[in-house]
Design a protein around this nucleic acid. Sequence first.
DNA 1: CTGAAAGCGCTTACAG
DNA 2: CTGAAAGCGCTTACAG
Lengths: 342, 342
Amino acid sequence: MTEATGATGGARKAAASYMVAEEAGVSQSAVSRAYKSGGSVSKATREKIYAAGQKLGYRPNAIARSLISKQSNMIGIVMADITNPFYSSVLEVFLQKLQAEGQKAIVLVATRDQDVDDLLPQLLEYQVDGLVVTSATLSSEMGRTLSDMGVPVVMFNRSVPDSHSTSICCDNNSAGRQVAQLFFDRGMRNVAYIAGIENTSTNQDRRAGFLKRSKELGLSVTGQVQGFYTYDGGYQAALALCASQAPEAIFCANDIMAMGAMDALRYELKLSIPEQVSVMGFDDINSAHWPVYDLTTFRMPIERMVTRSIENLLVNKQRENRVLATETLAVELVLRGSVRSV
Amino acid sequence: MTEATGATGGARKAAASYMVAEEAGVSQSAVSRAYKSGGSVSKATREKIYAAGQKLGYRPNAIARSLISKQSNMIGIVMADITNPFYSSVLEVFLQKLQAEGQKAIVLVATRDQDVDDLLPQLLEYQVDGLVVTSATLSSEMGRTLSDMGVPVVMFNRSVPDSHSTSICCDNNSAGRQVAQLFFDRGMRNVAYIAGIENTSTNQDRRAGFLKRSKELGLSVTGQVQGFYTYDGGYQAALALCASQAPEAIFCANDIMAMGAMDALRYELKLSIPEQVSVMGFDDINSAHWPVYDLTTFRMPIERMVTRSIENLLVNKQRENRVLATETLAVELVLRGSVRSV
DNA sequence: CTGAAAGCGCTTACAG
DNA sequence: CTGAAAGCGCTTACAG
């Protein structure tokens, strides 16, 4: 159903700085200075100019400013999996903090498996001052190209050895070890792992820590299945893991898979959690604390990770010699009811 | 823990079109034409130019193009509540479809209650070709300003009478009526409503249809409580509604509130769903089909709504006389197990 | 503090 | 098909 409600006339030509100058009886450069914080103009002139600007509905053209100043104040964000609650939180925090810094965010979605390299040219054409990549990874060549162009890059929540970029991650390996330890301490001996996407550093690091510590403690790792970081993937993975014999505990590489696994265990396999199977997740997404799941998990310091990412970007775009580093932040274990108590 | 991994040199000056022209031995305008699809250049010239461009790592500067052509190919999106699964889906679809059209999206987050008007100046400075607003609303004055500037606006999922914009919505009133009918047909007589944010058109329309039809059918509406479109809000609202006596059925203005309500009913009030209380949601977010909730709800045609929004924007930015209309699309009732069968 | 002038990197009539 | 030229709306030395 479409209901026409009207039509409007064409565009009125927007006022430019020289028009404001004319109206105020000053030079165009004076107008430019008046609208620039810290610009060198007398109070009287500034007021005259603002009045004229107000009258004409003047709004500085950021595109023209970007062109001449070689600073767009735009940051590109490449993200897959926006609908995963963890990443939608990350995106929200990025947008809020960038907005607070007066930066604009151009957001691109990557389909999983898609090479981020294909997406970057369009971002570079728009002269973004920096780049945040939260999914997939960067080829070494693209990393060098960006570096040559002077566009700083932050890899968020993934570590990429040898890329010409900064990584902001969590200590996933240590977290994996903590899971094995927790399972051991609570008396479980047969454990399993539901993996995320195979070639992501988060998945690899979480698993490596978990397997290593499990071995040290003498835990028997009875299964490892991929769950692709999705609810349905976790659901299917849990069924696969329990095909012959359910493990006592399952470590899922993220929360949403853990929820899929829990639902499979309960509704399809009629197993009770945590009495028969303990489940552990990662991310502490919103629904993790819902009474249905009451999921034991890890909380990442999203705010701080984002803050550090933005700081790194903004500092590095000013510098000739960029500082590339990997920052590894600690995660916080959040104990809830999905892991058996004794 | 921070581990420095290196530092890189400064930026190499990016190649501009006149450099490519020099390298290829043609004019700068030829280069411009070669990189423009449909540009008038001979095959031989184009190839010579591409070779030179390749060699210099040339990438057209979209900022300069925007300035001269008065078309930025950027669309502004203003959204609140990105972490609500419904809106993160909407955002993802918008980003995908805009990308497919070669448009860039600048995304701004609005805090709820914040006037969108405050956010728009920064978007307008960046010369966006159009605007999508999915949260909050637009003042009539700002609507006129945008209209005067020739910036088309689409209000997504909200209808705003008298704004100088297009609305793409669903038939919320009809959906509300269907809920009352469904409750009635399934034998329930005492019903209740958990409202979203009070002054949103979605909330108002869903409630109006529900109340109207309830009255026609002789249903007794025993309670109405605000749930603010959040899980916690729905949880608290359900408790409030059942303070004296639980209704037989509750219509929640969105799914996430319905889930909060269900968890409150089950875990805090020990009521079973749907035997003792039926629950109905709206949106059909991903988790609605999870066995825990198995939620009866409405599915909105997100893909089509987004497609129509973008079409409207792209058509209207070309036109002198814009077509303003309200499009109301049908929603689909998704029957699951959270509403009692007989 | 203020203005005249150059220039950012493009697109697009215009003329040939 | 091709080039010379103007111009988009700004910022920023430079000189006063």
